[in-house]
Amino acid sequence: MHLRPVTEADLAMFQRYLTEPGLIGPDWRGFRDAQEPARRFARDGFLGEDGGRLIVDVDGQAAGNVGWRKGSYVPPAFYWEIGIVLLPEWRGKGFGWRAQAMLCGYLFEHTPVQRIQAGTHPENTAEQRALEKAGFQLEGVIRACEFRAGQWQDGLLYSRLRGDAPVNPQ
């Protein structure tokens, strides 16, 4: 397993995320513009200064992607917020925590960021375990932080700092 840049062949997977209810689980937010991934790919190949995406590649197959976006509590300092989407057939096999640990290593190596954070749903115990295996620590509950399934839902916030113990995703 490794992370690689998005290619044009991967755009169909991104279009599926936007048009197939349930494919990405509870994070699906309704139908979206299926041409947006092609526009983003044409603009910067999903590798912009404020965030990006890499493909989780397992033996030459796109299993999903990891992404990051810039956030800030106090400018000019910033943090990365990361996320992951694995296609259903790749879930529960240990690829998720490894991909997130690899992404953290990549971001700590290539950007001056001090903090990487990730959120998840309180009911997503598999992702909570994956984040902990990837070196993240639970910071707490963020109340009513997202509108999902017709109502406001709480989230859990995890973080990993540059000085935290390194994680070997092998």
Rank of each mutant, 00 (worst) to 15 (best):
M1R: 09
M1S: 06
H2S: 11
H2A: 09
L3A: 13
L3C: 12
R4D: 09
R4C: 09
P5R: 11
V6D: 01
T7R: 11
T7F: 05
T7Q: 07
E8F: 08
F14K: 12
R16I: 10
L18C: 08
T19D: 01
T19S: 13
P21S: 03
P26I: 12
D33T: 07
A34D: 01
E36R: 15
P37H: 04
R39N: 00
R40H: 04
R43F: 09
D44L: 13
G45D: 04
F46V: 12
L47V: 10
G48V: 10
E49Y: 11
D50T: 12
I55H: 15
V56K: 07
V58Y: 07
D59K: 12
G60Y: 08
A63H: 02
K70H: 04
K70D: 03
F78L: 14
F78N: 06
F78G: 05
W80Q: 03
V85C: 13
L87I: 12
E89L: 07
G92E: 02
G94Q: 04
G94T: 07
F95P: 02
G96T: 02
Q100F: 11
C104M: 05
C104E: 01
C104D: 02
L107P: 05
H110F: 10
H110D: 02
P112K: 03
P112H: 05
Q114F: 07
Q117D: 02
G119F: 00
T120D: 01
H121I: 12
P122M: 13
P122W: 03
E123H: 14
E123D: 14
T125V: 14
T125I: 11
A126N: 05
E127Y: 02
Q128G: 05
Q128F: 03
A130K: 07
G135Y: 02
G135P: 01
F136Q: 06
F136V: 12
Q137L: 09
E139D: 04
G140C: 08
V141I: 14
I142F: 10
C145L: 13
Q153Y: 06
Q153N: 15
Y158D: 00
Y158I: 01
S159T: 02
S159N: 00
D164C: 03
D164A: 06
D164V: 10
